[in-house]
């Protein structure tokens, strides 16, 4: 199942950025964040939660961390805070990889 984007196709195309998502070609617009590009591309999950359920970017402002994705080998990158770049390789991740945690958690 690959649901269509939940957003309308954008009319005024202004240049194209070429990237890959799990090895497959993906285009975006210059100035897009990774999360925006993924939401424009499809309505499908961009991450699996700790228990394996589907998630997409949620708050779009750096608060919720539902947009975590591997960017050029760097896991746990906030897709909503990262601008797209030509040649970027994105990989969807499952759960959370180790991430420096607040000392309050100890």
């Amino acid at each position: 199942m690959k649901p269509a984007s939940r957003f309308l196709t954008r009319p005024d195309q202004v240049g194209v950025v070429h990237m890959t998502l799990d090895g497959e070609a993906l285009t975006a617009r210059p100035g897009d964040t990774v999360a925006a590009a993924l939401l424009a591309h499809s309505g499908a999950a961009s991450r699996q939660s700790v228990n394996g359920s589907s998630r997409t970017a949620f708050c779009m402002m750096g608060v919720c961390f539902d947009c975590l994705i591997e960017v050029d080998g760097q896991p746990n990158t906030q897709g909503c805070m990262t601008l797209v770049r030509d040649g970027m390789a994105l990989r969807r991740q499952r759960g959370l990889r180790d991430i420096a945690r607040s000392d309050a958690d100890a």
Binding site: R29, L39, A44, C59
Partner: peptide, 20 residues
Amino acid sequence: PGVMPAGAAQILMKSAGLLP
């Protein structure tokens, strides 16, 4: 997927020209 805060969609409208 498919549930979002309304303000998040507005961020997409402002910064990416994406319309729900």
